Computed example of a mutant assay.
Amino acid sequence: MLDAVTPAPRGRAAASAGSTPGAGPGARGGAAGTPDPAAAANAAEPGTLDTVAQLSRTLPAADTAPLLGDVPDRLRAGVNDVLLAALGLALREWTGDETVIDLEGHGREQQIVPGADLTRTVGWFTTVYPVRLATGGAGLAEAEADPGRAAAAVRATAASLGTVPDHGIGFGLLRELARHPALTGAPRPWIAFNYLGRIGGTPDRHGAGWRIDGGLGGTVDGHRVADHTLSIDVTAVPGADGTALRAVFAYVSTAIEEDSVDRLATLWERALRAVAAAAVTTRLTPADVPLAGLDQRQLDRIAAKWAAR
């Protein structure tokens, strides 16, 4: 379901270069679906919030349900891992390569300060840190054809994100507060992603134990420079048929084409459905039986032997 393109009410979509700077397949000056290095300079130009537009998509409740429950349970992953694995598959198809993005989180990491207690506080402190979306070598077509490859993409994403200490809060502390020279001058990714959780209803099984009530939004200064060329905000919204995923793609319209963002949204929907099918895969991986000390080839050999009996 494609909603109308409207001016964005918030300002995280912006023009800053990153790992594949602005040469994203929709940068103005390049054909949709074809990375264009010449467009990098144009996409890296700062965009103001009054040039940001939005495109939104809603994934039906029937397709959303396994993404919030069965897939994370089966693959020992979090909802964020599942959504990011699908995004990694979509971006690989869209850009032609793995992509580094900025990942935003709630920042409620009280364990970094001894004795801190956030139980009487509400809201986000916000973390933003770069991550590379590794898909375990799988492309979107492969993931669609083989649920096992989709499952591998989720596991690869979860393993990669699992190496980030304290959900990335240290990155912002080092860059913005300590002004670490290795970070302050480094280019920032031009794509950002944020899973905001459920709006109303009850928290999902893999959530943080709290939820957002009411709507999101506010007023912004249209002259302010946005932070990313493309920003993707995702919420789980309850409805008559159940909970559905709603994604808002906010993009700097002077740097990236609407048709290209529409294509990325479609690719992500395809990837989400491919990942949802991973819930039915029965293939064991080393992550399922860590104490066995077996690699994937050994597990596959054992599974084939017992399947024949």
Results as ranks from 00 to 15, higher is better:
H167R: 11
D36H: 14
L174I: 06
Q111W: 08
R149C: 06
T95Y: 10
R224D: 15
D70W: 00
W94E: 14
G22C: 10
A182H: 09
V248I: 14
V71M: 03
T64A: 13
T126N: 07
L294T: 04
L83P: 07
W306F: 15
A279K: 02
A27T: 13
T121W: 01
A90M: 05
V113A: 05
R155C: 07
D259A: 15
G200S: 08
G105Y: 00
E176F: 10
R12N: 11
T48R: 14
A44V: 13
L2Q: 13
L83E: 06
A150L: 02
D204E: 09
E109W: 01
P290D: 07
F125W: 08
L196P: 06
A85E: 04
I101K: 02
P60Y: 02
W210E: 15
V71Q: 03
G172V: 11
R10W: 15
R263K: 11
L133Q: 05
N80I: 07
H167A: 14
R57K: 12
A158L: 04
V275Q: 00
L133N: 02
L59P: 04
L267M: 05
F249L: 13
P66H: 01
A138C: 08
T235I: 11
V52P: 01
L284P: 04
T48I: 12
V248S: 09
W124H: 12
G148W: 00
A304K: 04
A40F: 05
A86K: 02
L177V: 13
R211I: 15
V5W: 01
L67H: 00
G201A: 09
R283K: 08
T254L: 05
V128W: 01
A247C: 11
L245G: 02
P130L: 06
D70S: 05
A141Q: 08
R149H: 04
D81S: 03
A41H: 05
L245R: 00
A116K: 00
D97C: 14
F193H: 09
G201V: 12
V275N: 01
A134P: 06
D259F: 05
W268R: 03
E93Q: 10
P114E: 09
R270Y: 02
A23N: 10
